Amino acid sequence: MKFSKWVLASAITLGLGGTIFTPANAASTDTSFDKVTDEEIGTVYGGWSEDTGYFTNSSLLERSISLLSTPNHSAERQWNEGTTLPYERIVATTTWDGVYHYSRARYENLFGNVEADSKRVYGTGKTKATSGWHSGGGSYAGKSYYGVD
Rank of each mutant, 00 (worst) to 15 (best):
A75H: 01
T22Q: 13
D117Q: 12
E76F: 01
W133K: 09
G138A: 06
E108R: 14
G82R: 13
K128N: 14
G123Q: 01
T124C: 06
L110H: 12
R120E: 07
A26D: 11
T130K: 13
I12R: 04
K128I: 15
K126I: 13
E115F: 08
T94M: 02
S103D: 03
S64W: 02
G17F: 13
W48R: 00
L16P: 00
S4R: 14
S131C: 04
S69H: 03
G136V: 05
A11E: 07
S49V: 07
T84G: 15
S66C: 04
N109F: 08
E50T: 03
S4A: 15
W96N: 04
D117F: 11
G53F: 01
K128W: 11
R89W: 04
G136P: 02
T94N: 00
G138E: 05
R63P: 02
V7R: 10
G142D: 04
S49C: 01
S28Q: 06
S103P: 01
D34C: 10
A105I: 05
S139F: 04
F3T: 15
E88H: 10
Y102I: 01
G15R: 05
N113D: 15
Y54K: 10
G15Y: 09
Q78M: 10
K143P: 00
A11K: 05
G137W: 02
L61C: 07
P23A: 10
N57R: 01
E81G: 15
V148R: 07
V148T: 13
G47L: 00
D38C: 13
G125C: 08
Y146I: 03
A92Y: 02
M1W: 13
T70E: 06
A9E: 11
Y100C: 07
T127R: 06
E40A: 13
G47S: 02
P23R: 07
V7K: 11
Y102D: 04
N57V: 13
A116W: 02
E76L: 11
G53D: 04
L67V: 08
Y45C: 00
H101N: 08
W96Q: 05
T43W: 01
G82P: 05
Y146A: 02
F55A: 11
D30S: 04
R89K: 12
G46P: 00
T22P: 07
I12L: 11
W96R: 04
K5P: 10
G132S: 11
E88L: 12
G136K: 06
Y107V: 12
A27I: 15
L60M: 11
Y146V: 02
K2M: 12
G82V: 11
D51P: 00
S74K: 07
S49W: 00
G112C: 07
T124E: 08
G82K: 14
G18M: 11
E40Q: 14
D51V: 08
K35T: 13
V91C: 09
